[in-house]
Amino acid sequence: MKKLHVRDIILIALIAIIFGFIYLASDGLYNALTALLTPIGYGMLANDIMMGIWCMAGPLAGFLVRIPGSAFLGEFLGSCVELIAGEQWGAVNLISGAVQGLGSELGFTFTSYRRYDWFTLFLSATTTTIVTYLYDFIKNGYSYFSTFNMILYFVVRWISMLLFTCVLVKLIVNLLEKAHVIQTNQN
């Protein structure tokens, strides 16, 4: 089995950092959505709407560095950035980062790291949705919701994952393939 080398680790960490900076651009939208949805009781839904954006580094790292563990690292190192930046949430976000990373990685594991196409991204988006939802179910009180809301939150999160970690990641991967970045990186 191929192992991660220092070059791969640096690349994955850089991707995690870059995505972290780009996510910052979506913070305004997140706050606005939360403020808008809170009066009607769906403030926490903003989290699920945005979840796909925060989970893009994992599948992209998994696609770019085709070695077991890279999707997990892509997500997990993203949460390390906050720790290093001295963010107060930093240490605790490592757990969320690990949970998201595990979800991302599972999609690649289920295809035995052999398929790199739409199906793998779809699978990874779905496993990330399930794993992160289960974590929020316990941690963020989703278990107190009505059955309808439990399903609604799950479906919204799934759609967000499909849009960002599947469609948008595939569009980025297509550009990278056209530029021969993915092949050159394999050498």
Partner: peptide, 26 residues
């Protein structure tokens, strides 16, 4: 913006080049 593939694409190109330079440097 955060939904533009081109932004990620260009940033990843830089990341690939930096990762090679940093690893070579080390």
């Amino acid at each position: 913006s955060f939904y533009s593939p081109a932004l990620y694409f260009k940033a990843i190109l830089s990341a690939v080049s930096w990762s090679n330079s940093l690893a070579d440097g080390m």
